[in-house]
Design a protein around this nucleic acid. Structure first.
Lengths: 217, 217
DNA sequence: AATGCCAGAATTGGCGCCACTATTGCCGAA
DNA sequence: TTCGGCAATAGTGGCGCCAATTCTGGCATT
């Protein structure tokens, strides 16, 4: 069985395409933290050459999505509890800056977020879909900030923990809690109460962290 | 004339070596912002193959040291005033966190910093050396923090502006000001006054930014 | 039975090559 | 003379190959 990776989001550009594909496999937990990435096999699986994949892995290594050891190749990045906490601490500060820098979103932007959140609520039975939509929801908000560089770095920090977040969501009993938190954030966003928004985002974030930590071996 | 890059800091490992070399060329302003990086020539110049260089450039691209355009290759990253300010704003927040997280450095660590600063003072007539030592001084401080991930990201943000900083230092009249600022920071570090340290580092940093901005075209 | 060692297999590291795309410089028409 | 188009050239994108290193499984030794 030849498995072609989902090329839904792949416009073109070999390396970017490859990086996106591998990133997506990691986020979807089809490649697990700590797992060895055999270049030859992975390249075949993605339908491209090893050299191209190599460049992608190098990029992902700088992004900390994978770990590189000389002469031993790449493995999916694995985080300990300590590192995970540092990661979330970073996001505490960066997302605070981002959210404070957002001027009131347009009607259209706001509607998009509301709709996304409704889809999250509706997908409560499908953890994978919840995670995907949740990512889209949060990343979209980051992009509303004029602080381009920080937004990009934050996106990276967000994605770093994605595989772990995905696992914790799977085992979450009441997945409607996520959408409920988002409701609160959206309300704060709508009335333009920056402090409230930051506070609610913080709470939402740490609820996530609290779910993740116990899953870390 | 065959030019071999300075292999002082290059342990081994093709790609890392290449990335370090290119980074060092950019920081030293031997490759200027906006400049096209022709892979073939650069590979020859560094004494390695184009494919290996390619991986390095890919990594540097994620680090934002270079910019990539599809089918047009890589150029040395170029920052506008707006971006530069964002970069420094990032460092405001990240270096604050780092400095606050540092527990009092050991005698030995402290002595190293003092000595470095004396060398900066002594090298006042040699701008390039001042820049190199200054980098070493600041990066070393970052590494004292237990916040490993943030320290690494901050190192990256620091390096991103290095080429611009190098230029502004060259045209600086009284280069002893830099060492004087460091004196103040070291004093705060020694007496363990975290707030004072953060404040003085802030002032130092923005003096740097104020010098850089006018040099941006 | 456990441990150290050695050859074979598997995997990574680095390189040169060819196809494709962008750039350039030239030439002819307006 | 200037501008638009076209061919030659330069440079990037992607691939397969071979050397070097690491891993693995079997064998001998204690």
């Amino acid at each position: 069985m030849v498995e072609v990776v989902d090329d839904s989001q792949l416009a073109a550009g070999g390396v970017e395409r490859a990086a996106a594909a591998v990133r997506s496999l990691i986020v979807a937990r089809r490649l697990l933290p700590g797992e060895q990435l055999r270049q030859d096999e992975l390249a075949r699986r993605l339908g491209l050459s090893r050299s191209t994949l190599r460049e992608a892995l190098q990029a992902l290594s700088v992004e900390r999505m994978v770990t590189y050891t000389r002469n031993r190749g790449y493995t999916v990045a694995r985080f300990g509890a300590e590192e995970m906490q540092q990661l979330y601490q970073l996001r505490d500060f960066s997302e605070k800056l981002l959210l404070e820098s957002i001027s009131a979103p347009s009607e259209e932007e706001f509607a998009t977020l509301v709709e996304l959140n409704e889809r999250i609520r509706a997908a409560a039975e499908d953890p994978r879909e919840v995670v995907r939509l949740n990512d889209e929801f949060h990343l979209k908000i980051f992009d509303y900030s004029p602080l381009r560089i920080l937004a990009e770095e934050t996106r990276r920090w967000w994605t770093m923990s994605a595989a772990y977040r995905a696992l914790s969501v799977t085992t979450l009993q009441d997945r409607s809690l996520i959408a409920a938190d988002h409701d609160g954030m959206l309300e704060a966003l709508r009335i333009g109460d920056s402090d409230l928004l930051v506070q609610r985002a913080y709470k939402h974030r740490h609820a996530s962290l609290d779910r993740i930590i116990p899953t870390i071996i």
